[in-house]
Design a protein around this nucleic acid. Structure first.
Length: 794
DNA sequence: GTGTAATGCTATTGG
DNA sequence: AGCATTACAC
């Protein structure tokens, strides 16, 4: 047992670790050792004699939970660490909901609908209601429903909520409440919960069943919430309820890193927290251990542009380090090339490994150019996020059969595979089934099981096909408790026809699909053999539940006449599949030394020695959709802050002047965020960036570090009135012909190629050396020399 | 009912 | 450009 853990902490960290009783808020700047504090805090609790069964720790990813548990295990003991309740909100409360599902009228084996399932269900409802999909966009409808649930507004309440109704009327979508209501009913009938339901229903459970609230309040005597800035109202209330009795609640977060407001996260939760617990103790972790001074200072400069923030002073005693590198490319492909090239060079010059590099981007679509460039230079890489394994079509098809075997009422799984592979039950038939299900208020499955009594207008041949399908699913269903996950999964794969269908396709894509299903079966095999951790590493909860579980399994084994080996079944495997993300995937040997590619969102909580943030262009980063409101723009800026603070040694920012979007070439201008970093933190690391800088920064055009390489290159022949003096590394760029500005007056509206439109507020000195002060609508006040400024009078 | 061609839509971010 | 849904021929 390691007794020295407290000595490994600085004063603030140590105080936060030792403040175990009562409400605590830890404001943790980027790279300030937050994970270490959380880890040691939990270890400290256990050392002080708190039973791990009584500790709940909510993390942002399951992987984070797994890793933290491992580290805690090294300080206390492995067996003690195992008993902690640790995981994401969704996985922890999915677990609890399974135990208590019956109270809410849900089956224990309820399905978790993913976003595709939810959208598909909404599409079905739109069709039924005769609503136009063009007006009621599924994503938008789901967004409204999701927002309502995250604010704990149920369907009925939504229909009676004047504000919501008014808003929907105003936006020309008055039926959203009806859709919401239908959606909930259909989910319930299908024995399914979507992601938001996992939190919403937990709230219902704790609100309406005092004995259950009591049970979990008593159980979770110490609660910790990581990444608190990214929790939504629904999560906030759950935590508040659970912590109400003992009030040993510790939240950790950084308002500067709040990047999930778009899905309901609410910084307000931090303020509410202060209000809820007046005796709150607050600790600030401000020393950054991760990054160099230049990175920390540049990041501080970025975030200081936000109005909404908690007071905080992040600093570091680390070395000065490299400046922020800025590189410009002509195209998105070239951007990929300069990044790949830079990685290659750094590997050579600094003995860096592939895994020391990360490429971060705003949107997943940007990965393509990066991948291509890395492939060409033979640099191994791994993409996080995007389409995960479990989201691939063939895998989802296979999983749909499994889901149906476990919960035949699962409507989305049913629709997915009722006629795939083709078995002669087409759309018309399925539509009849859907109508019958709706009219009788039952599930599709119930209709199929009782196809005679419902008296459907379906011919006998098709009826037989449906009955065959039902019989097949039923045969899978009865095997559930007596077969292990692999045996049953394999059996289903070969009997449902999917494997045959895929095997028949000999195209490269077809082969790959077949292999993916095989890969899924391999996963089942590993799970069944039990030599790896289950898909979700939520620790076996309280002894009571464990006993029930063990007894259940023993019974089943007895019935099956099997050995004493614990049976790991398909439904166990499937339980949390829907909640798995790429970030949770265990790293294989292979992944260990690869360059990481991911969105900035996915990079939250991670760190790398060398970070590239690519695509720093207006309308991409910040996203075009964020430009309308200050709060949205501030979220983008926090995102940029998160990106830069991932870097330990060096941070490189890149942008391209043209980029393919929607299949055609569009021109781009550099992101406003680049202007927000003081130039003294920036090194213009390629010639294009230096040129751009010189052109942009009239009137100062201070001389940047001379590039040793440039003097050797022959200067192009000089031309008069060259707009951009490409050789102007050591000399001022040639003035452009600006005689049209000669009579510029204060008060006139002007347009700048970079800063947009603005108004002249002051003029100083005689033309052509006039210095103009212009207040731009977007970019704010700038001083420009008329001699150089690319201004146009409006 | 099935398979292929044509159309149309999309690309924030994610559990 | 790439994917998904739709339209149309068989």
């Amino acid at each position: 047992m390691n007794d020295n853990y407290l000595n490994e902490l600085n004063e603030a960290q140590r105080a936060a670790v030792e403040a175990t009783e009562g409400p605590v808020m830890i404001v943790a700047g980027a790279g300030s050792g937050k994970t270490r504090v959380l880890t040691y805090r939990i270890a400290h609790l256990i050392r002080k004699g708190v039973d791990p069964f009584n500790i709940l720790s909510l993390t942002f990813t399951n992987k984070a939970a797994r890793e933290m548990k491992e580290r805690i295990g090294k300080i206390v003991s492995k067996s003690e660490a195992r008993n902690l309740w640790m995981g994401t909100f969704h996985s922890v409360f999915a677990r609890i909901l399974r135990n208590e599902a019956e109270r809410l009228g849900y089956p224990t084996n309820f399905t978790i609908y993913d976003t595709d399932d939810s959208k598909s269900l909404i599409r079905t409802i739109l069709k039924e209601q005769g609503l136009d999909e063009k007006i009621y966009k599924t994503g938008m409808v789901l967004g409204r429903i999701s927002a309502a649930k995250n604010n704990l507004i149920g369907a009925q309440a939504y229909l009676q909520n004047p504000a919501a109704q008014e808003e929907d009327r105003m936006s020309g979508k008055p039926k959203i409440g009806i859709i919401y209501d239908q959606y909930q009913k259909r989910c319930f009938k299908a024995g399914a919960m979507d992601f938001d339901d996992l939190l919403y229903n937990t709230n219902i459970l704790l609100r309406d069943y005092p004995d259950i609230l009591n049970k979990y309040q008593d159980k979770f005597r110490y609660i910790m919430v990581d990444e608190y800035q990214d929790t939504n109202f629904s999560q906030y209330v759950i935590v508040k309820q659970l912590a109400a009795r003992f009030q040993n609640i510790c939240v950790v977060g950084d308002d500067a890193q709040s990047i999930y407001a778009f899905r309901g996260a609410n910084i307000q939760n931090i303020l509410s927290f202060e209000r809820d617990y007046p005796e709150l103790k607050t600790y600030k972790l401000e020393q950054n251990y991760r990054s160099t001074k230049n990175i920390v200072n540049a990041a501080n400069a970025i975030i200081s542009n936000n109005r909404d923030q908690l007071e905080k002073n992040v600093w570091t005693s680390n070395a000065e380090g490299d400046l922020i590198q800025l590189m410009k490319a002509n195209t998105d492909n070239e951007e990929g090339q300069i990044v790949a090239r830079s990685i290659f060079d750094t590997k050579m010059n600094a003995q860096a490994k592939n895994k020391d590099f990360a490429i971060l981007y705003r949107t997943n679509a940007q990965s393509r150019a990066m991948e291509e460039a890395l492939r060409k230079m033979n640099i191994p890489y791994r993409i996080y996020g995007g389409l995960s394994f479990y989201q691939r079509k063939e895998v989802k098809d296979m999983l749909a059969y499994y889901r149906l075997a476990i919960n035949p009422h699962d409507e989305e799984a049913f629709k997915r595979v009722i006629n795939y592979p083709a078995r002669g039950i087409g759309d018309t038939t399925v539509d009849k089934l859907i109508i019958a299900a709706r009219d009788n208020d039952v599930s599709l499955w119930t209709v199929c099981e009782n196809i005679g009594p419902f008296g459907l207008q379906i011919n006998s041949g098709t009826t037989q096909k449906i009955l065959d399908f039902v019989a097949m699913i039923q045969s899978f269903n009865v095997m559930l408790p007596v077969q292990n996950a692999y045996d049953l999964g394999n059996h289903i794969a070969s009997h449902c026809g999917l494997l045959r269908e895929l095997y028949a396709d000999k195209t490269p894509e077809g082969v790959s699909r077949y292999e993916n299903v095989q890969e899924l079966l391999n996963g089942l095999k590993e799970f069944s053999d039990g030599d790896t951790t289950p898909p979700i590493d939520l620790v076996e909860s309280d002894p009571e539940l464990q006993r029930i579980e063990v007894a259940k399994q023993a019974n089943l084994l007895e019935e099956a006449g099997l050995s004493d080996k614990p049976l790991r079944t398909l439904d166990q495997f499937m339980q949390d599949i829907a909640l798995l993300t790429d970030a949770d995937a265990k790293e294989t040997e292979e992944d260990l030394n690869k360059v990481s590619l991911m969105t900035i969102h996915a990079a939250k909580g991670l760190e790398f020695p060398y970070v590239f943030v690519v695509g720093l262009e207006e309308n991409l980063f910040p996203s075009a959709l964020s430009l309308n409101s200050r709060t949205d723009l501030e979220e983008e800026r926090r995102l940029f802050y998160v990106a830069v603070t991932r870097a330990e040694k060096r941070c490189t920012l890149t942008y391209a002047s043209t980029r393919y979007r929607w299949g055609n070439l569009t021109s781009c201008e550099a992101s406003r965020f680049l202007d927000e970093i003081d130039p003294k933190f920036i090194e213009y690391a390629n010639a294009a960036a230096r040129r751009q800088y010189d052109a942009f920064n009239e009137p100062s055009f201070e001389v940047k570090k001379p590039n040793p390489g440039t003097t050797a290159t022959p200067a192009p022949p000089k031309k008069k009135n060259l707009v951009r003096a490409t050789t102007a590394i050591n000399s001022a760029p040639a003035p452009i012909d600006n005689s049209h500005l000669k009579n510029l007056q204060v008060g006139q509206r002007v347009r700048h190629e970079r800063f947009g439109d603005g108004q002249v507020t002051n003029l100083e000195g005689p033309f052509p050396n006039t210095k103009a002060t212009v207040t731009f609508d977007q970019a704010g006040q700038k001083q420009l020399l008329l001699k150089f400024a690319k201004l146009e009078i409006l």
